[in-house]
């Protein structure tokens, strides 16, 4: 009678090892690609951010946090950061608000599929393309100014794309136009997945549609909303293509958002180590947001239990 023997026998160990080696063969291409082109560069970028380095001069001295303090004392950086905050807040509120509104509007009506398609198409198009079109909307001789003059609000026309106060809202509008579609479709899916019984029960109890929405639909939608929000926010503040294209006339491109700031300082001003540090900062912000999301998701799950 054998006593308790939890360790695997030599035969089982050999089988496990063979399994693992086979698995490794299947995993290898993916692991190699990701490591070489993504993970190693990531580490390298962090390393660079702590050195002083001008393009190819080969001087790699360790300078500690000099690049980071440079960033924090750079007014352009701060303006870009401020704009980025606007982007974060806007991409938190606008696509969700609009998306939710549209989702509620479109829920269950005839031809919902057609509406969904129409709202969703901008999402598929390149941000470059979107930015180009909206550039002409906000251009000096563009559609917005034309529409304003047309309805007699000629005094309200301005150079949207040159005005420091107006450029960011203008770009945010273009971006929102693009991303609301996706949010709306995801929310529609979420709404469709809601169980109908609680809603019917509330109706029987005499709740108005607004009350039903606020007290029943919204809480049940929260998990979907959360996921959708995070996608929206991170996409929002890291967006480059659209900002680059729409902001082409803007004199101080480097202050538009952190993403553009990073590109400009690195590839146009040749401040490589500085650019690396900005990239790290952007990454940290993204991590922070993801971390907050995970926390909130945990809280939601705990509350559901």
């Amino acid at each position: 009678m054998q006593s308790s023997r939890p360790k695997p026998s030599p035969r089982e160990k050999a089988a496990q090892r063979a399994n693992f080696l086979t698995a490794l063969c299947f995993l290898a291409p993916a692991v190699l690609l990701v490591t070489v082109f993504l993970l190693v560069p990531l580490i390298y970028n962090v390393w660079i951010s702590f050195t002083g380095w001008a393009k190819f001069s080969g001087i790699d001295r360790f300078v500690g946090v000099a690049n980071y303090s440079q960033a924090f004392s750079n007014p352009k950086f701060f303006e870009a950061a401020g704009n980025t905050v606007s982007w974060i807040v806007a991409s938190l509120v606008l696509p969700i608000g609009l998306g939710l509104g549209f989702a509620l509007l479109l829920r269950g009506i005839r031809g919902a599929e057609a509406f969904k398609t129409v709202f969703f198409v901008p999402r598929l198009l390149a941000p470059t393309a979107i930015g180009t079109i909206w550039y002409y909307v906000f251009a000096d001789n563009g559609t917005l100014n034309a529409m304003l003059s047309g309805v007699g609000l000629g005094d309200w026309t301005r150079s949207w794309l040159y005005d420091p106060l107006m450029i960011t809202p203008a770009m945010i509008i273009a971006h929102t136009w693009q991303t609301t579609g996706l949010v709306m479709v995801l929310l529609l899916l979420g709404l469709a997945a809601l169980p109908t019984e609680p809603l019917e029960a509330a109706q029987v109890e005499g709740a108005t549609p607004f009350q039903i929405f606020r007290h029943i639909v919204l809480p049940m939608l929260l998990p979907t909303l959360l996921v959708v929000t995070i996608i929206s926010v991170i996409a929002g503040f890291t967006t480059f293509d659209l900002v680059w294209v729409m902001g082409r006339d803007y004199p101080n491109r480097s202050t538009l958002t952190l993403a553009v700031h990073q590109y400009w300082e690195t590839f146009r001003s040749n401040r490589w180590a500085y650019g690396a540090s900005v990239a790290v900062l952007i990454g940290l912000i993204a991590l922070l947001i993801t971390w907050v999301q995970t926390l909130l998701q945990q809280k939601l799950e705990d509350r559901a239990k």
Binding site: R5, P8, S9, R11, E12, A15
Partner: peptide, 17 residues
């Protein structure tokens, strides 16, 4: 499945491995 201990024979042939 791989046995922890013991042998399996099929037609007098040890097929455990």
């Amino acid at each position: 499945e791989v046995p922890t201990e013991g042998e399996i024979l099929i037609g007098d042939r040890d097929v455990t491995d």
